[in-house]
Amino acid sequence: MNDTKTPVFSCPEEQKVFSRVYKYADMATRLMEEHKTPPFPNTYALMYAYASAENDDIVGIVDNMLERGDLSAYEIDEVYSNHLCPMQDQAKREKIGERVEAQISSVLDLVGTGVENSDQFETVLQQIGNGIGQTTSIDQLSAAISNLMSENQRMAGQSRKLSDGLKESRKQIELLRRELEDVRNESMRDPLTSVHNRRAFDIKLAAELDAARQNNSGLCLAIADLDHFKRVNDTFGHRIGDEVLKVFANIISENIKGQDLVARYGGEEFAIILPATDLKAASILIDRIRLQTFQRKLVLKGSKKPLGDISASFGIAQFVPGMTPDNLVELADQRLYLAKRQGRNRVQAEDCETNAA
């Protein structure tokens, strides 16, 4: 007996919508199988977006990735973070915005009620005042005073309600502000290593380059690349490779100052922005990071099997007037590749070849 249920659609238009959804879902699954991509939610979301062809940028990027055969988990996550997560971040911000609007509406209602009560209280006071002026007996005066006290108590109660309501709204708005800040911070972080991502790097580099230009201050950029990282992944698996990335990111983070920024720039590449820093100071700092990385002897949990030497190569560029962010990145990249050619596990801060580190 076939237990498969046929979906019931309320109208032909609904049937068309579901048909498209099923079609794109099937295409996404086939693409994942054909290209042996990691079977993760991010991969499916990216392939579904590619199949639906609703975003030209995603279609172009995935076309290039398929052509290069470059469908690693990191590259997929990078595209997902840069092109699909912003949509989710925007949705989160919109929801928070709706809640802020609701709180503002509540505040306006409270203020409106307060104004209305105040006007009523003023009217009653005026009436009581006029009545007191016309009293001819102790009983009339006593009744007027009793009326005044009753109205005063009513107004005091309304004032307390208004104050409590405004305090609660203020608390809720502050909570929403923090939620909005959390969403913004999440969108600027690499989910694996928790350091900043490429988007945060681009924003920070542009800002620091403008500051260096305006203040005539120092600025250096270092780009780091873990040596033979593919060998780690191939030998021990991607999960261990991810742990190595976290360790390296942590070593960098522990050595930089508050005004500096480290970002995951690519798969195993990291970028370090060093404001108010000259080339000599940057070289000393980056070499300390290089040495600590090489000296960190990593072993597998349980078996205690050593991973072998983990090292990184670095290229450093110093900002000079007239440079753009792209110029600075390109120069740091060139010096990184020069460090690689000279044997790796070294810091390159010049355009010419130097002795081994």
Rank of each mutant, 00 (worst) to 15 (best):
A222W: 05
V329I: 15
E54F: 11
Q158V: 00
Q295M: 08
I284C: 10
N185A: 11
M47F: 15
I240P: 11
P86S: 09
R296Q: 14
D278T: 05
Q214F: 10
I58P: 02
M188H: 04
Q172P: 02
E243M: 10
S253C: 00
V299H: 14
D63H: 14
I203R: 11
Q126M: 07
F236D: 04
L108G: 05
H238D: 02
Q127N: 12
E94N: 10
I240A: 12
R99V: 00
V320A: 14
N197S: 06
R231K: 15
E269P: 07
Q158F: 06
E268P: 02
N327M: 06
I252Y: 12
E208H: 07
L108P: 05
R346F: 10
R264M: 11
G129P: 01
A276I: 01
A45I: 03
N42S: 08
V107W: 07
M87T: 04
A49I: 00
T277Q: 07
I273H: 09
V124R: 08
R170I: 08
Q103A: 09
P38H: 07
R213K: 13
M32C: 13
R213F: 01
R30A: 14
E33Y: 09
Y48Q: 02
D89P: 02
Y50C: 01
I128A: 07
R68G: 02
A28P: 05
D70Q: 08
E101R: 15
L219I: 03
M27N: 14
Q15N: 05
A312M: 04
T324C: 00
L46M: 03
K304P: 00
R199D: 01
S150C: 01
N130Q: 11
I251Y: 08
V107E: 07
Y44E: 02
R335M: 06
L226R: 04
L205H: 05
V62G: 03
I310H: 06
R184T: 11
K305P: 04
Q214C: 09
Q15F: 05
V232A: 04
L46Y: 02
V8S: 11
N216S: 12
L338C: 05
G133D: 02
I132C: 03
G258V: 02
